[in-house]
Write a protein that binds this DNA or RNA. Sequence first.
DNA 1: CGATAGTTTGATATCCTTCAAAACCTGTGG
DNA 2: CCACAGGTTTTGAAGGATATCAAACTATCG
Lengths: 239, 239
Amino acid sequence: MENPLAAKLSMFADISLDDKAALNWLCDDVRVFQPKCDVIKEGDRPENVFLLVDGWAMRYKVLPNGRRQIMAYLIPGDLCDIHVFILKEMDHCIGLLSEARIAVIPKEKMLSVLDERPRLARALWWSSLVDDSVLREWLVNMGQRNAYDRIAHLLAEMWLRLSVVGRVDGNSMQLPLTQVDLADTMGLTAVHVNRVLQQLRQDGVIELASGTLRIPNIEKLMRVSAFEPNYLHLQPRVN
Amino acid sequence: MENPLAAKLSMFADISLDDKAALNWLCDDVRVFQPKCDVIKEGDRPENVFLLVDGWAMRYKVLPNGRRQIMAYLIPGDLCDIHVFILKEMDHCIGLLSEARIAVIPKEKMLSVLDERPRLARALWWSSLVDDSVLREWLVNMGQRNAYDRIAHLLAEMWLRLSVVGRVDGNSMQLPLTQVDLADTMGLTAVHVNRVLQQLRQDGVIELASGTLRIPNIEKLMRVSAFEPNYLHLQPRVN
DNA sequence: CGATAGTTTGATATCCTTCAAAACCTGTGG
DNA sequence: CCACAGGTTTTGAAGGATATCAAACTATCG
């Protein structure tokens, strides 16, 4: 399968064969991690950059009172901050939602590629600006949408992001999230997430069971969530 | 008054006199803008970077249904994305909350400084990573805290950020926000913000009137909001 | 096949919203 | 210097979305 980062970056720029080779070189140390383990912990001072090659991860934070907020999902092709090592220490954790294959990239290696391949550097810049944009949209989601629209919006976003990296198969995709995960993402309780999901199923918007999400009608999902894809900055609009 | 960006960056690294001169050179085109006007609009393709020298601005988005979400406050020393021009178009607006003095920096100028002053480039990198971190914390705030804690937390954050750039005078600061602004920031209604502010006043946590916020006891504010300043990455802890 | 994680259900509580109106500012023009 | 206009803050009453608690049900996996 193609390098998912190359797939994503080619939404922004033409990635040459040389660039692809450089990306593959970055990914020459791929390790397998078990689900539920933390790749980076709050307080760490990371010396490497991680590139998720396969599987799902999340950024999250646990408050003193025990509540957890998930702040981002990382999917194949996502880098965990190209420049983390600038900060003195991590202010949040990155944990795995599924088994994952992760490329471990020493910072020197990352920096050398950024240095020698300006076109790639620019594309990676674009990618991290898009990550910021996604984060802002999550804030909008939490602040301005009710539970139903909020969950629908998240599912639509993940569907689009996954399709860019070839992880959508027809009208279904893997969704390795429990209802508790969804709750901690959306600022809701698991109980309420459960009821909303039932509603979404009843309305024929989604089919969700045993880790597989089927979207019978993407337009409908987009419509009910008032989804505006511009914030994903996929200029050749997906779909 | 000192360049507020230099003040902020020196929280991260020693900024040399040369670096300061470079920063001042970046800021040689300062323009005055009136409150409530938009500096950048959704859909724009900005060719300049803006540095807020004085006043308050906000990032915000207006949904199709008319609801507004404020996603960040910009205060003196804040850049509106050092690399916006990489994106094809803006996905949100930047509007002014007060009269403001803004340095307009052509992208070439910005890029040349990043190129020639690696230490400064690194410090600006740090700054934009901190901005991301703040955004993530806002998500935590929305998702996991109730209205009272949420507002207290925001006020604590702004107090710290403003003190870094010398905008806190003793135990008071300017807060050019209406209760509607606060509501659109926190995902609450203005009515509820009003009642929570009354509660905060009653509890002796804040004094807020006519655009001035007084915090009689910072420790108390930090305590009630369970404020953990690590996400601001001010290594020599302020206070 | 029992243990454990995840999902579903019901009943009740609460936080926050909605709507509507009054009171209060602040600036402006007469 | 007053009056008026528009934005902002405050108040009250009532409704709704989501939380909380507790228990049952259902998968999944060694």
